[in-house]
Simulated scan of single mutants.
Amino acid sequence: MKTKLLYQEDSYVREFDATVLDVSGNEVVLDKTAFHDGTGGVEADSGFFVFGGERYSAKAAHKGGEVVHVLDRPPVFKPGDVVRGVVDWEKRYRKMRLHTAAHILSAVLYNRYNALITGGEITHEYARDDFNVEGDMAAVRKIFEEAVAEVNQIAQRGIEVRVYWLPREEALKIPGVVKLAEKMPPDLPTLRIVEIPGVDIQADGGPHVKNTKEIGTVKIIKVENRGRGKKRLYYTVE
Rank of each mutant, 00 (worst) to 15 (best):
V163E: 06
P185Q: 01
I174Y: 01
W165R: 13
P175H: 02
W165A: 13
P186L: 05
W165D: 14
V163Q: 09
W165K: 13
R162V: 12
R168E: 02
L172C: 04
E169C: 00
K183L: 14
K183H: 13
E169M: 03
P167L: 05
K183A: 15
P186M: 06
L166M: 14
L191Q: 12
R168S: 06
Y164I: 10
K183Q: 15
V163S: 14
K173I: 10
M184F: 12
K173H: 07
V163K: 13
L191F: 06
M184A: 14
P167N: 08
I174C: 05
R192P: 15
I174K: 04
P186W: 10
V163A: 13
L166Q: 11
P167T: 04
P185K: 02
M184D: 15
K179P: 00
L188S: 08
T190R: 15
E170P: 08
W165S: 14
R168C: 04
L166I: 02
V178P: 15
P167Y: 02
L172E: 03
R192V: 03
V177G: 05
E182R: 15
V178D: 14
A181D: 07
V177L: 01
K183Y: 09
L166F: 05
R162I: 11
L188Q: 07
E169V: 00
L180R: 02
L191R: 09
M184S: 15
